[in-house]
Design a protein around this nucleic acid. Structure first.
Lengths: 219, 219
DNA sequence: GTCTATAACGGGATAGAC
DNA sequence: GTCTATCCCGTTATAGAC
């Protein structure tokens, strides 16, 4: 029970780091051999530590998603403690949802290029990720948003959180290309600045009136 | 020179249709064998018609992106013709950008699950798609949005169009899961309704004030 | 123009040595 | 607990028959 990191854990971490980076650069289909070569570990170590390539991806996701979601719920708890009843401040709820994604751990930027790929994975995989990491958080934030925008119909609220997630995912995902296509005008740099931009845009969206949906009744 | 579709074109189309659907369900890594089996064509036909699997994907993308972009520019042209000078109506510019994605051809829904995967593909692939199908359209819409929101700094405008794209992509991409996770509350059904929701949210976002970015000057 | 058969390769997983 | 060597499978692409 000493404080030193065992060699096994060190290997495990190196695999995780390298796999995250290479899958970000080249996609999930990057060969395990490419990962182990760059990590300077043996191919067998992957199956020893993670059992399969799929499970390695699960571990990559869990390592980044878990602390972000913890931080999100922490911030939301604090917010709710400050406002035990009545309306919650919309901007601050959105900030609790978005800020941890951009700053939380100093290595969140490593999973950026993978985020969009995770969120657009085939259904079966996506359902697993959603059930494991997203359901609970989304439900908590839906409740909080209901208190922040009490006049919004529940379906509309869900749509708007959905839009917010889309903005967030796309911003993470295109972080490295954005400066190129915008001729240097846009850059995902300071977490606070990025979050502020997202929060301002989303909050305005949440506050706008529900569009008149000329619904056709079924005869 | 008769009007009948040659057998070769028929095969080509069947490959395109099946590949689009299967790649949507299972990801790009779906084997060509699975595609040709379901399409009822021979494996060799793929390489005959498309030269390679990569080029097949390019063809899938071109077939859906091209008409959408044409329609977008048509709508924008009409809009600009109606307002030869002065401000453009923001909602209508956004509608020209978004509506064709959801209604244009009746088969746009087939590429939905692929959209997110295309937009989160590895850099090299993404740059190719962006250069081929997106650069021009984005530039045209940036110009139009400058006329619709003249007070917005160019960088902020680009950010906000970027957010809008994220909302759109995520909505396409999660179209089939959205009803499940929202307990039936949300559904991508009528194109007009979906577009209206996106336009309302985005327009409000575009209209909000630029957040005060307490920029730290470098000493 | 279309299909068959095959080549050439690279992948993940594993059994067993260390 | 870690590494080596190997197995076996599925892949794309192609050469050549029809």
């Amino acid at each position: 029970m000493n404080g030193a990191v065992s060699a096994g854990q060190e290997t495990r971490t190196r695999i995780l780091d390298t796999a995250e980076r290479l899958m970000g650069e080249r996609g999930f289909e990057v060969p395990l051999r490419a990962i182990t070569a760059e990590a300077g570990v043996n191919l067998g170590a992957v199956n020893y530590h993670f059992h399969s390539k799929d499970a390695l991806l699960d571990a990559i996701i869990a390592r980044r998603f878990t602390p972000v979601n913890q931080r999100r719920l922490e911030m939301l708890d604090t917010l709710e403690a400050c406002h035990p009843e009545g309306a919650l401040p919309l901007e601050e709820v959105l900030e609790a949802f978005l800020r941890p994604v951009f700053e939380s751990s100093p290595d969140m930027c490593h999973i950026r290029p993978l985020i969009g790929r995770i969120y657009s994975a085939p259904r079966e995989f996506l359902s697993r990720v959603y059930g494991r990491h997203l359901t609970g958080v989304i439900q908590r934030f839906i409740s909080a948003l209901q208190r922040a925008a009490p006049d919004l119909p529940p379906a509309e609220l869900f749509w708007r959180l959905h839009f917010t997630v889309g903005m967030m995912v796309h911003t993470m995902n295109w972080a490295s290309i954005l400066p190129v296509i915008s001729n240097g005008a846009c850059e995902v740099g300071d977490p606070g600045e990025t979050t502020a931009r997202l929060v301002a845009f989303a909050a305005a969206g949440f506050r706008t009136h529900v569009p008149a949906t000329e619904k056709h009744f079924h005869a």
